[in-house]
Amino acid sequence: MEEENVILSFKGIITADLLTSVLHLMEAKMETMDEAPRTRKRVFSILVECLQNIYHHLDDNPTEADFEAHNRSAVVLISKVNNQFLIRTGNCINIPKIMELKERLDMINSLDKDGLREMYQTSLSEAAMSPKATAGLGMIDIARKSGNKLDYEFLEIDTKIGFFCLNILID
């Protein structure tokens, strides 16, 4: 039977301060749990990338009127399911941006461990060439560290705004 224990959950507007608090809280919580240091590090590293991804994604749309404050909130849920950590995130996304993100996620999911390493290294060296940050390095890192496929879903809120759900099961 599936057993799920919620470790931490959050719903609201993601700010830099909040991001910091959630990470501090999660780290403190994990210290009290009987987990291998390796697992703790993995979960924490993946959480860092997840939260910073959401935060930066929101940062891309500061002036878009369609992206109002209520759409700037996100959901984060960290739990343990049958002894494995599961991080679930949900955040709003502009509909026109969905296709690009979906293609990137499918690309990442089509690769094995070696393919992911190669894609990461290519993206990292490209990042060093251009002053503008290349998007998606975080997603590749999450896929590499979790050891699982990125389980995602896009929901439609209205004609302009969608909702992006990402579930990361950590080996």
Binding site: K41, S45, A128, A133
Partner: peptide
């Protein structure tokens, strides 16, 4: 490093 995020990795390349 004991932890390194991808944002830092990019800066380290520079």
């Amino acid at each position: 490093f004991d932890y390194l995020n991808t944002s830092s990795s990019k800066s380290l390349m520079h």
